[in-house]
Structure formats: C-alpha cells, structure tokens
C-alpha cells in the first residue's frame, strides 16, 4: 500500500492536507510525521507550510529534517505547498534574508519590492489572498484533467519570480507575473493551496497520489 508522508514541522494546517489526500484516494495511507525514517520510507512526500520562512527553516533544522527533505526531494514524488515551495529556493528576502534549502536556484521576493522595482502601483492588497487563475505553461502529469486557467486559492506576501521554462509548470499574475508552480523531475511545488482549492485542487492532489515522479 502506498504511503504518503506529510512532513509535520509545526507550521500550518496539516490536517487539511491529510484529509484532502484521504478524500481523493481512500486507499492512501497518509502519515503526518516528523520522523525521518517514516519520511524516508514513504512512497511520496509532501512539504506543506504556512507562516514565516525563518521559523520554517529553523524548525526543519531543529528536527534535523532539512537533510531529509533535500534527500527525498531528489528521489521520490515530492509536492511542496506554499511555504513548502518557497523553502525549495536558495534564499528568501523574508525576515531580513533567510537561506532556504537551495534545491531550486532563485530568491523569494516580497510583492511590495517587486511592484516598486517594476515601477507599478500595487494592484491590490498584500498578502495576495484569495482565488487567482493559473496558466499552465507546459503539460505535466499533475495537470491531467485540470483545465488551464483554473482558479486556485493563494495566500502569501512573498513570491517566487519567474524561473526558466524548464523549472516552471504554472504562472499567475498579481500586478506582475510570478511562478505559481515549480516542476522539475520528481519535484512539483505550488504557491497556492491545492487542499483549499475545491475541485481543481483535489484533482491535482488525486494526480499526485498516482504520480510516479516522472515528467
């Protein structure tokens, strides 16, 4: 039986992620866990997370999970969600500059800084909170059955700037274009919350429970 480890490092609403997985796949064995051996032994791994990046990184380090995450993110079907996506990058401007896991090159930025640099007025409030559409920039097994330009639920003040097409599977626009989905080999990571995005989000999670980790 396939096991999905949802990494519990004290950040955020893990119950929703676990319940959503059980909802889309009643045979899924979902383990909400901080135990390295359970995470290493799982068939699939999810790194969720809400809150601040410094707290996220320090909790991962305190629980000695940063190495485990780097390891499983190289070999298993891996889904990062929200802060769990931002943590994959090299660093974040949040909390005065925070080093992250460095699995994907780039720097996480604050919307206000992005708007200022682009010389544009803020298109609305920060955090970017609510439903926005995601353009699928390329095909991917996790997009199967999910229509292009579907609406997903976002809540974040920091964003991942556009990365190369080889690292990106989805883009959204809030004043400026930003990376909504990172995809590379066995890694898929979303800025939005699929577990809170009703039908479209559940479709994506259902695809994840069946994904073999290839593009």
């Amino acid at each position: 039986m396939a096991t999905i480890a949802v990494i519990d490092y004290g950040m955020g609403n893990l119950r929703s992620v676990a319940k959503a997985l059980e909802h889309v796949d009643d045979r899924a064995r979902v383990r909400v866990t901080w135990e390295p051996e359970v995470i290493r032994g799982a068939d699939r791994v999810i790194l969720p997370g809400v809150g601040a990046i410094r707290e996220c990184m320090s909790e991962l380090q305190r629980l000695e999970l940063d190495g485990v995450v780097r390891e499983v993110a190289r070999e298993k079907p891996f889904l990062g969600v929200c802060l769990g996506m931002q943590a994959l990058l090299g660093e974040s401007e949040e909390n005065g500059g925070t080093a992250a896991l460095g699995l994907v090159p780039g720097t996480v930025r604050h919307f206000a800084a992005g708007f200022a640099e682009a010389g544009m007025a803020a298109p609305g409030k920060v955090p970017h909170m609510g439903w926005n559409q995601v353009r699928q920039t390329r095909g991917h097994p996790l997009w199967a059955g999910v229509p292009d330009d579907s609406w997903f639920y976002f809540v974040h003040s920091y964003y991942v700037p556009l990365l190369g097409p080889d690292l990106t599977a989805g883009v959204a626009t809030y004043g400026l274009d930003f990376t909504a989905v990172i995809a590379r080999e066995n890694i898929f990571a979303t800025q939005f919350h699929p577990e809170k995005s009703q039908h479209a989000g559940l479709g994506l999670l259902a695809n994840f429970t069946r994904w073999d980790g290839t593009d």
Binding site: P123, G124, H128, M129, G130, W131, N132, Q133, R135, D149, W151, F154, A172, T173, Y174
Partner: peptide, 8 residues
C-alpha cells in the same frame, strides 16, 4: 487574469 473578489 487577476485576484477575484470573494463571496463569503
């Protein structure tokens, strides 16, 4: 394409 106004 932009953020939608929400009905709660």
């Amino acid at each position: 394409m932009t953020l939608a106004k929400r009905i709660i």
